[in-house]
């Protein structure tokens, strides 16, 4: 493994705190601005970067991430450019883990082998592919493992004790626990049920568990990291991008800052 994800969680454990995982969409609102956004994320308090690969039909995402994907596509984002963004980020940051997140079709069309090779070269550490459950592990998960790229799986409230071993079998890096039944950025997580489920899932895996979907504030992040090893913030960040744009969808002087200051604020919840 590149080991960045493992090293990151181990380091944080020593510090006695959880990880802040930040999601933004690659190429949103355009290539240059997107690069500035991710370049500043670690300094703003992000421990791991999830980078969304835009797709026209993101069936597990709510309106905020749907809109971000369409903004990126309109600005000409492609898989090639997403990998180029990671490479550009990696040139200035050798430590922060980068996880690409998205849907299978753009990867399938790019070519699985070529994608994994190019992702490895660019400095990608892990993948989250929403529409590849363990039943489809032959497609991408097993080839990714062979290339030492972590395949991070989503576990959900429907992942019961029978299902959990199936889900975790080929999972590496960390587990992403989806805290609500639903799509990204809509419902707020019920903290009690999150804690219960995280503790339940720990019986099935030794991997760190990060919790996401619907996390918007430092307070929520603080509460979640009492039981989880990490917290994921996504829709709130891409909404900050969306809200900072001109009517024509162009970035303003506020765009990059809006994301970084929200990350700093939520990081304070994780670090306190």
């Amino acid at each position: 493994m590149s080991g960045r994800i493992e090293k990151c969680f181990a380091g944080l454990k020593e510090q006695g705190r959880a990880a802040l995982v930040t999601f933004v969409t690659a190429g949103d609102p355009d290539y240059e601005t997107s690069l500035k956004i991710i370049q500043g994320l670690p300094k703003a308090g992000a421990d791991i970067i999830e980078f969304g690969m835009p797709f026209t039909d993101p069936m597990a995402d709510g309106p905020a991430i749907q809109a971000a994907g369409l903004r990126a596509l309109r600005a000409g984002q492609t898989m090639k450019k997403t990998l180029k963004l990671v490479k550009a980020f990696r040139a200035g940051d050798k430590e922060t883990p980068v996880v690409l997140m998205g849907y299978y079709n753009p990867i399938y069309v790019y070519g699985v082998e070529k994608f994994l090779t190019d992702a490895k070269v660019a400095g990608v550490d892990g993948l989250i592919v929403v529409d590849l459950p363990p039943e489809e592990d032959d497609e991408l998960c097993l080839p990714a493992m062979k290339m030492d790229i972590n395949f991070i799986r989503l576990a959900t409230p429907t992942t019961d004790d029978n299902r959990a071993p199936v889900v975790f079998k080929n999972t590496s890096g960390f587990v992403y626990y989806v805290s609500v039944l639903g799509i990204t950025g809509t419902k707020a997580p019920d903290l009690k049920s999150v804690q219960k489920n995280v503790n339940r899932l720990r019986r099935h895996t030794k991997l760190p568990i990060a919790v996401g979907f619907g996390v918007k504030s430092a307070e929520q992040a603080r509460a979640i990291t009492r039981s989880a090893d990490g917290v994921v913030v996504g829709s709130a960040l891409v909404s900050a991008v969306g809200n900072s744009l001109t009517k024509a969808g162009k970035p303003t002087s506020k765009t990059v800052k809006a994301v970084h200051s929200l990350v700093s604020e939520i990081a304070s919840g994780v670090r306190s």
């Binding site: 597990a60 459950p133 989503l154 959900t156 429907t158 989806v178």
Partner: peptide, 12 residues
């Protein structure tokens, strides 16, 4: 064919 769905839907 296949079952290319999010984990939430797999048990269903």
């Amino acid at each position: 064919g296949g079952r290319f769905v999010a984990e939430t839907l797999m048990p269903l």
